[in-house]
Design a protein around this nucleic acid. Structure first.
Lengths: 170, 170
DNA sequence: CGAAATCATATTGCGCGCAATTGAATTTTG
DNA sequence: CAAAATTCAATTGCGCGCAATATGATTTCG
């Protein structure tokens, strides 16, 4: 059926594989490039990139539970528990059991953790220069990526307060 | 000096921190969202996402050294060596010492590795649907991300065949 | 009230990702 | 030609990232 007729579809599939490769590589290696760019700037402070993300989140909203942090960062306790212990050991945060509900652990910034916010501005300048993009471009890129990530996540997460979806379940 | 004069600059810095947070989170979580989306599709084949990226690269160019693969994927031997051993154990690739230069190891696709390319097309369709973006949008996003990653990398890598840079060294 | 279900965090196991080191092969140099 | 420098791959150690499981604490229900 597709012996030598107009445009066999194998090339089309290959083109799609090429597109897949391009986007997979692009996101994968952009994330790692970010990581590698931040690393030498964070190292003097004894911080890793994921730990810096936790601080970024806490600078916006201090005193949150592990669960709340995990939802903001899309990370589970398996990742956060040891990470937060290390952040505590470095003196950036404090972990205190909620007296009212002993299941929960409250994460709060220490003085050192709050002071680090000032240093972050300097780090930020370096990244801005390294990226070679304007603030507008970076903002637009962030928006596009967030939309993409949200779409992908919608496949996996149980629709938190979105559509009523299937009311018949259970 | 900046007691109540026109527009103190603390808010501006905070706005930049917010931008930083947005882009850091966006790339970070887009990468993880990709990972999580591919995982259930690759699991039946006994593949991880980084292993799939290696296959994508080999489908384009088979029979390459570990070093060449590492340059294409921006990964070093510390990551690739164990990963390639697992890919060999799963039967997707073969690792053979180069007879001419015994330092090098050639990575080649097995029959199973080549056959997997066909299944990849099906996986691709799923991702396309999950992303909720058109091929054009995904392509544009990939291009923007690649440019960003290249800019970031330019800070770290010693300019491979780019500008002559500093000819005086050594 | 008390057993069962649910919830929040911690732990374990495995696969990256990367810096630093090692070991063997090859090239460069004296 | 032999010693030194370089190159390629593998190994080690540590920090994620996530699934699966474990451990208490709290809520729900009978």
């Amino acid at each position: 059926m597709a012996d030598k007729g107009a445009i066999p579809d194998i090339p089309k599939d290959d083109a799609m594989l090429a597109l897949d490769r391009q986007l997979c590589f692009a996101i994968y290696s952009a994330a790692h490039a970010f990581n590698r760019t931040y690393k030498p700037l964070l190292e003097p402070h004894g911080l890793t990139y994921p730990q810096y993300l936790v601080l970024l989140s806490l600078w916006q909203d201090d005193a949150r539970t592990v669960k709340a942090l995990g939802e903001a960062l899309h990370l589970d306790s398996g990742t956060l528990s040891p990470l937060l212990k290390r952040l505590e050991a470095s003196g950036y945060i404090a972990r205190t059991r909620d007296r009212a509900d002993e299941r929960q652990v409250l994460i709060t910034l220490t003085g050192k953790g709050k002071e680090m916010k000032a240093s972050a501005h300097g780090i930020l300048m370096e990244i801005g220069k390294a990226s070679g993009c304007s603030a507008e471009e970076l903002g637009a890129l962030g928006t596009a990526l967030k939309a993409l990530a949200d779409n992908l996540r919608a496949r996996h997460e149980p629709d938190p307060a979105g559509q009523p979806e299937n009311v018949l379940a259970k």
